[in-house]
Design a protein around this nucleic acid. Structure first.
Lengths: 335, 335
DNA sequence: AGACAATATGGTAGCGCTTCCATTCCGATG
DNA sequence: CATCGGAATGGAAGCGCTACCATATTGTCT
């Protein structure tokens, strides 16, 4: 096995200096057309593949962006990652991907190992930033975008691209109230670990309080996400409160699962019970009846985050450090 | 802004040699407990973050694995990536993620820029490997796992972890035939770009031929994936062939969309028409009626791929270079 | 006591690039 | 014709580590 070719090998083959080869690769216009051609030919002949590890060490730039999400598998996050990845790729950046699993100590250790790779920028979608992690990022002095919930804007390390889970959940709950529903249940995720879920629940409660409707803890459920879990939640809540008007599921997957259960039970939606979701998952438009839900443009989060980071990497002064991508209530037929 | 601390700064602070600091970080047991403590304390005080870029250059190992998928957003792929990421993380490897978009030239350029980052191993899920890319990977001399379809095993760069789309589709079609269906339509993806889709269609045709049933091209559809598209396909196919018995959708999302359309139309499944899917998407168990489908363990692909790559990185001789993770027909009620 | 391992530590030469500083060579300028 | 400025190129000093080799110190066996 021959050793991999180095830049110096290309230089010798093309009978130019090392510096010239580097220039051909990094700033082609500073080299005469003739030498450029000669160098390119040598590169092709030798089959030279540049070593960006060495390049990064010398230039102190890696052209790598670290991205961290709670789980890679969740479409909500992978949509964000995908559009971010596309945006960065055009500018020659690659994505180092990690998952935190909503876990603080995991987040912390992941950030620290990521920083050792000297990414030029970092994106993190997650719950509250551990204090140690905050300090590390600050010291690293690279552009950072946090996402997850707009409330993160206070005390943020650097920049934030997000929406308000509180406002979104409150808006949906108010919408249900405006439709005349009064006994409204709420299904969300484990609120201990997850401040987005917490905010949604707060939004629900706030809307009820504003309407002077007591918040009943037995109508609030904390569950894992899943179709099955949605169906079970429906049955459970109807057992607890037979007069239940509506259920606000803070996730379309639960809501879709509940709609299936309604079909199995022969309950009419929204006449017997109204169902609302969250996320505008692609299934939401197709369920029977179509699901009323909250839309958040996940791709937009990734895109804006990338743009913010890129402009900072270009050295531009970023004035708007907090971007609220907002949300939208999608009124369909289920509520 | 102070400069970031280097290893030599830690060494001076702890009054030890540079080498010793390196040892504390890389092979702690080769250092006496006392010095180790002293070094660790210095690291904490200074807030030293190792520079893996420099480390990688010197050691010629990056502890990075490059992973490429057609699209990041598709749960089918992100599930594979997630389990692969978990498997690698335990061993201290990070994932560099890219998407190819099923495009050959994109794949080629992505591979070449990825290789410049000197990953220790590479995973690629996609269609046929472009010849140039094949050559580059061969020259790079790193362990590679290809996935997508088992047929890739012939002429593979290195290792393959996959299942047979042909066999899976054929098995499902045979299952429909065994249930007495005779007029069976097939819905798949654009087969030009995507050899997995091609293989599935071949499997469908092969099963029909074996049963001496003519393959009718008007009963074969090439579509984009989507709930909506599934519903439309159903309507279209029933218009083309009113006596249609069954539809085999090579993707659960289409199938679920079709099931919704059946509800809207009041058609009974599987009495009026049988519906089969592919993927065992989490929605499949919950639809009304539950969807008969093909299950492929996507997480398993990621896990096995990671294990294969890891054992090669450890220097073990890998005997089984081709791993067939297989598939499973999940019989539910829709067919 | 002498010989030899084993253990613990340090010095230093690269790893393959980028970047700074020279240097050379030209045509343009007065 | 001497002077200058820009374009094109090359030399060499790091970037911050790891890995190899050397050295010092201790314990172990005969």
């Amino acid at each position: 096995m021959k050793e991999t070719a180095r830049m110096i090998d290309v230089a010798r083959a093309a009978k130019v200096g090392l510096t010239t080869v580097s220039r051909v690769l990094n700033e082609p216009k500073s080299v005469s057309e003739e030498t450029r051609q000669r160098v390119m030919r040598a590169i092709a002949e030798i089959g030279y593949v540049p070593n960006l590890v060495a390049g990064s060490l010398a230039s102190r730039r890696t052209n790598v962006v670290a991205a961290m999400v709670p789980t890679i598998g969740n479409p909500v996050f992978s949509e964000t990652i995908e559009s971010m990845s596309d945006e960065f790729r055009e500018e020659g950046f690659h994505l180092l991907l990690g998952r935190t699993g909503e876990d603080e100590s995991e987040t912390e250790s992941l950030i620290s190992t990521f920083l050792a790779r000297r990414p030029d920028a970092l994106f993190i979608h997650g719950s509250k930033m551990p204090a140690a992690a905050h300090a590390m990022l600050q010291r690293a002095a690279i552009p950072v975008v946090e996402s997850g919930d707009l409330s993160r804007a206070e005390g943020a390390v650097d920049m934030v691209v997000a929406y308000s889970n509180f406002a979104a959940a409150k808006a949906m709950t108010s919408h249900l109230l405006s439709r005349g529903h009064r006994k409204i249940a709420f299904v969300g995720r484990e609120t201990r670990l997850n401040d987005r879920a917490q905010e949604r629940q707060r939004g629900y409660s706030a809307a009820l309080k504003e309407a002077r409707i007591p918040v009943r803890s037995e109508l609030i459920l904390d569950l894992m996400l899943g179709y099955q879990e949605g169906a079970q939640a429906l049955l459970h809540l109807r057992a607890v409160e037979p007069d239940l008007d509506a259920i606000f599921f803070a996730g379309d997957v639960w809501a879709a699962g509940a709609l299936y259960e309604c079909q199995r039970q022969g309950w009419r939606v929204p006449t017997d019970i109204a169902i609302a979701g969250f996320d505008d998952h692609i299934v939401a438009a197709q369920t029977v009846p179509p699901l009323t839900t909250v839309r958040v443009r996940r791709g937009e989060i990734g895109r804006r985050a990338a743009q913010l980071l890129l402009s900072r990497l270009r050295g531009d002064e970023v004035v708007e450090k907090i971007i609220n991508v907002g949300f939208e209530i999608i009124e369909r037929e289920s509520a």
